[in-house]
């Protein structure tokens, strides 16, 4: 009897060690899928370059944590969160879409402003229409492309128009700032109104022309950790990273204005 017990114990130990052997390579190979945890951040499409960099920084300080992003329009993201999408943090490109999430009681803490951005004029590198100022945008025959007033960049455009008493006559009112950029990059448009960050991200493909009137419409980006996220605690830590000096440095380099 005793012999049998010993044998059983040995067998169990062997089985355990085998299982251990088997799982070790898998764990080291795919530490993210196996034992690791995944932090899911929903962020406005405009945050793609900066947040991707911050995600890598977050992963390097949190062993075993994989950060995945869902970059899309803030409205789409807010809609998905309200409809039960599993997200740990939400970065909205404006306050209105964040409000729908906080109003639904889904934010862990109050939303915080983490960056601002302003409009700038984007023109093709050779600036065929010779644009140098906001007032140049009212030139006759100019192919100007802007965002539709219902999307944030278009609302900002409209606000500047009202504040300066100018009326723009765009040839197209696009759905997203990326669509405006694409038309300037393709040379179809003589000028487009986009964010400073977009011009910096586009590199050599467009030229940015800053104008003083853009201070009439400063857009605020807000972020919040989400209460019902599967990794709500990590979500808050990511928010802290974005608000930290390190995070702010990354955002500043990309052309965003300071949070205050």
């Amino acid at each position: 009897m005793r012999k049998l017990c010993t044998a059983a114990a040995a067998l169990t130990a062997l089985a355990l060690s085998l299982a251990g052997c088997a799982s070790t390579p898998a764990a080291t190979g795919t530490s993210t899928a196996g034992g690791g945890t995944t932090l899911t951040v929903f962020a406005a499409a405009s945050m793609k370059p900066t947040f991707t960099a911050l995600g890598t920084a977050f992963e390097s300080t949190h062993a075993g944590v994989k950060v995945t992003f869902n970059f899309a329009g803030s409205q789409t993201l807010a809609e998905q969160i309200i409809n039960g999408a599993a997200a740990d943090a939400f970065a909205s490109a404006n306050e209105a879409n964040m409000k729908t999430v906080t109003d639904a009681g889904l934010a862990a803490t109050g939303a915080q402003v983490y960056a601002t951005n302003q409009l700038t004029i984007a023109v093709p590198p050779d600036n065929p229409a010779g644009i140098t100022s906001w007032n140049d945008l009212t030139k006759k025959g100019l192919k100007l492309v802007v965002c539709a007033p219902v999307v944030p960049c278009g609302a900002a455009t409209e606000k500047i128009e009202q504040a300066t008493g100018t009326t723009l006559t765009p040839v197209s009112e696009e759905q997203a700032v990326t669509d405006v950029m694409a038309k300037v990059q393709a040379g179809e448009a003589d000028a487009g109104l986009v964010y400073q960050t977009d011009v910096i991200a586009a590199g050599e493909t467009v030229k940015g022309i800053e104008f003083a009137e853009s201070s009439k419409a400063i857009n605020t980006n807000v972020i919040a950790a989400l209460k019902d996220g599967p990794q709500a605690k990590l979500g808050q830590e990511f928010v802290d990273l974005v608000l930290s000096a390190e995070g702010q440095q990354v955002l500043k380099a990309a052309g965003f204005g300071a949070a205050d």
């Binding site: 409205q75 539709a148 219902v150 999307v151 040839v171 197209s172 009112e173 696009e174 759905q175």
Partner: peptide
């Protein structure tokens, strides 16, 4: 074509824009 009311904004584009 872009998107401008009455010129290039067809019904599917209008739907996509209104959704916002």
């Amino acid at each position: 074509a872009g998107s401008l009311q009455g010129v290039t904004r067809t019904l599917p584009l209008e739907i996509y824009l209104q959704r916002v």
